[in-house]
Design a protein around this nucleic acid. Structure first.
Length: 604
RNA sequence: UGCCCGAUGGUGUAACGGUAGCACAGCAGACUCUGGAUCUGUUUGUCAUGGUUCAAAUCCAUGUCGGGCAGCCA
């Protein structure tokens, strides 16, 4: 296959191979996947991989991917999370797979249909829609596992009637003891052979709220001696006197993941249920439930892949919450966090996140992904679209001694050398400038290409200057550089083609505007912050955020949140949401590759 | 010492019995009014041992190492 063809065909991996085979066999009328987060936290970069996989497959095979809240545990879930999940998914797939996003009409629950002569439930997705509540639009919303509680309850009774499930009175502790251990079989619950009638009666009374939490449970009757722990009469329902964020006070019993998930997939007509490796051992149970219910339509199948573990990040929900609660970061969307909202706020384009998530591939091999892959994807994307601007992060004053006092020139500056269509803009130049403190070295190393006493450097888009005097204060700190410009060397001028090794950025002191620049770096100093159970707080990077006041070219006054900027020679920046009129704040998404920094480190 | 899964350069992956390829990172160079970008070249790899085969990263066996599973979490 040629590389071009391969590109058009999308990535290839073992799951897509399976799907492609099913498509070729016409096994299903349409490929249907789903992305089913539990709304108990914010989505992070790991979810991005799952989203790209599930929506990517739908997109590549002309299918649908449902967004579903896997909300079967009322004590952990909140609407705040539902909203953020929806927002994050929309952002990530916008312009890429929105036409494959499966949602449903607001308030709709599964409908009773007749399939192959039997009673059946089904909830169709409405595709190509984004959540809209405006007048005249059909209101749509994500799927919710909790919308299936009625059907799930019926399926549970059906299992009881078939003698495949029973109400068990063992306490949680006893249940645990009866389960045995991986290398030791469990033993049957004394309630295992309770009559169907009694089970039905008890289960109904559980639903009515007659018993306290933990008093009874509904269990599948499988095999207490199974080598697979999840087949040792797993719990299907537990009693929980708790209000649910979506169903309110209606229920006192809630289904567990294993019971709810496979059936939710079935109800939505999912064909390929893709999840992470830790559910591999649950697959037998997933199949068992569906098969024992003898459902009329084709059954969904579960496939597992290795989740993303990016270096220098933590992704565990518990730890993320800890960072937020202990105010180590500024909130769920802190730009240092690997949450999708943090990544977005940092200025990473959705296309870059997707590129990364697709690029890491899909396998069953668990590994730590090099953060360089992530950073490369971001730079590659930003390089193509970012508007170049001049800004000085740590200014030092430069006076051009031979430049006419009071003169101001409007110089042409290229907006994006990667894109001619981006055009040019004017940047004011004058005899008093700011340059980057790092771009001057009093005792420069031989390969330092920038400004040094007596040395020359090119000011980007402007003149070549020579440093003639270094002015210091009483403390010996450099306060000003007095330089002489080669006035013929201006871009387009007589000596414009003189070869000067270094080119630096600058801003005109009188015209510069101030902006807060938030310089973000990785949050941790170790690739695996939690390696060997170490406290991740011990390896926090103390320099993960540095805030400076940058001197910016005046054009940046009109910066927008949508636009991406490259501050030349420094990095990519995005306007933060906290920016207000007259008070600009930029987040540094990522630095430019810096070979000089690497070089100087090598020497040290 | 139970069951399940996995192992290809430093990292992520491809090769589906027939030349171990790609990307990142690294290194060297070219070019450059961004030490950016781009371009060229390049170092490094099939966990081990047997077996099947004309031919094995691929199939089989054994071993080693790593991971998952004993929530009324998902």
């Amino acid at each position: 296959m040629s590389s071009e063809k391969k590109e058009a065909a999308g990535p290839s991996d073992f799951i897509r191979d399976i799907v492609a085979k099913h498509v070729a066999e016409r096994k299903y009328p349409q490929i249907h996947t789903r992305f089913p987060p539990e709304p108990n936290g914010y989505l992070h970069i790991g979810h991005a991989k799952s989203i790209c996989l599930n929506f990517g497959i739908a997109r590549e095979f002309g299918g649908i991917c449902n967004l579903r809240m896997d909300d079967t545990n009322p004590t952990k879930e909140e609407v705040e999370y539902v909203d953020s999940i929806q927002e994050d998914v929309n952002w990530l797939i916008a312009g890429w797979a929105d036409q494959n996003l499966g949602l449903k009409e607001k308030g709709k629950t599964p409908e009773m249909i007749a399939s192959n002569g039997t009673r059946d439930f089904y909830l169709k997705a409405s595709v190509g829609a984004v959540p809209k509540t405006g007048a005249g639009k059909t209101a749509v919303e994500p799927f919710y596992a909790s919308d299936y509680f009625d059907q799930l309850y019926e399926y549970a009774e059906e299992l009881i009637r078939k003698g495949k499930a029973y109400v068990c009175d063992l306490t949680p502790k006893e249940t645990d003891e009866y389960r045995g251990a991986p290398d030791r079989p469990g033993k049957d619950s004394p309630w295992r052979n309770r009559s169907t009638e009694e089970c039905l009666d008890l289960f109904r009374r559980m639903r009515e709220g007659e018993f306290p939490d933990g008093a009874r449970s509904l269990r599948a009757k499988i095999d207490m001696a199974s080598p697979n722990i999840w087949l040792r009469d797993p719990l299907l329902y537990r009693i929980r006197h708790a209000e649910h964020h979506h169903t309110g006070p209606k229920w006192r019993i809630y289904p567990l993941y294993d019971f709810a998930h496979c059936l939710s997939d079935y109800l939505e007509g999912i064909t390929h249920s893709i999840c992470t490796l830790e559910f591999e051992v649950h697959r037998a149970l997933y199949d068992w439930i569906l098969e024992n219910l003898e459902l009329p339509r084709p059954l969904p199948k579960q496939y597992e892949f290795a989740k993303l573990i990016p270096g220098y990040m933590i992704v565990s929900k518990r730890k993320l919450i800890q960072l937020v609660n202990e105010k180590i970061v500024a909130g769920w969307d802190d730009p240092r966090l690997p949450t999708i909202s943090g990544i977005r706020r940092r200025g990473v384009p959705a296309s870059a996140l997707r590129k990364f998530a697709m690029g890491v591939g899909v396998t069953k091999y668990i590994s730590v992904t090099d953060i360089a892959l992530y950073e490369h994807a971001i730079r590659e994307e930003l390089n193509k679209i970012a508007q170049r601007r001049l800004a000085v992060l740590r200014p030092i004053k430069v006076v051009i001694t031979n430049y006419p006092a009071g003169q101001v020139e409007e110089l042409d500056a290229v907006n994006n050398p990667e894109d001619d269509a981006a055009g040019k803009r004017k940047v004011p130049f004058s005899g008093e400038l700011f340059i980057e403190r790092d771009d001057f070295m009093e005792n420069a190393a031989p390969k330092f290409f920038r400004l040094r006493p007596g040395g020359e450097v090119r000011l980007k888009y402007a003149y070549i200057i020579k440093c003639e005097e270094v002015v210091k204060d009483e403390g010996g700190r450099i306060v000003e550089l007095r330089c002489r410009a080669d006035l013929d060397s201006k871009t387009g001028g007589a000596t414009a083609n003189r070869k000067i090794k270094g080119t630096i950025h600058w801003v005109s002191a009188a015209h510069a505007i101030d902006a807060e620049a938030r310089l973000y770096d990785r949050l941790f100093t170790e690739v695996e912050p939690e390696k060997d159970g170490r406290d991740f707080k011990a390896v926090l990077n103390p320099h993960s955020l540095e805030v400076v006041t940058a001197k910016c070219e005046p054009g940046l006054r009109g910066a927008t949140a949508e636009e991406r900027y490259q501050f030349e020679r420094l990095g990519y920046f995005a306007l933060d949401k906290e920016s207000a009129q007259g008070k600009l704040a930029f987040n540094r998404t990522i630095t430019l590759k810096d070979t000089w920094a690497k070089e100087s480190v090598k020497k040290a």
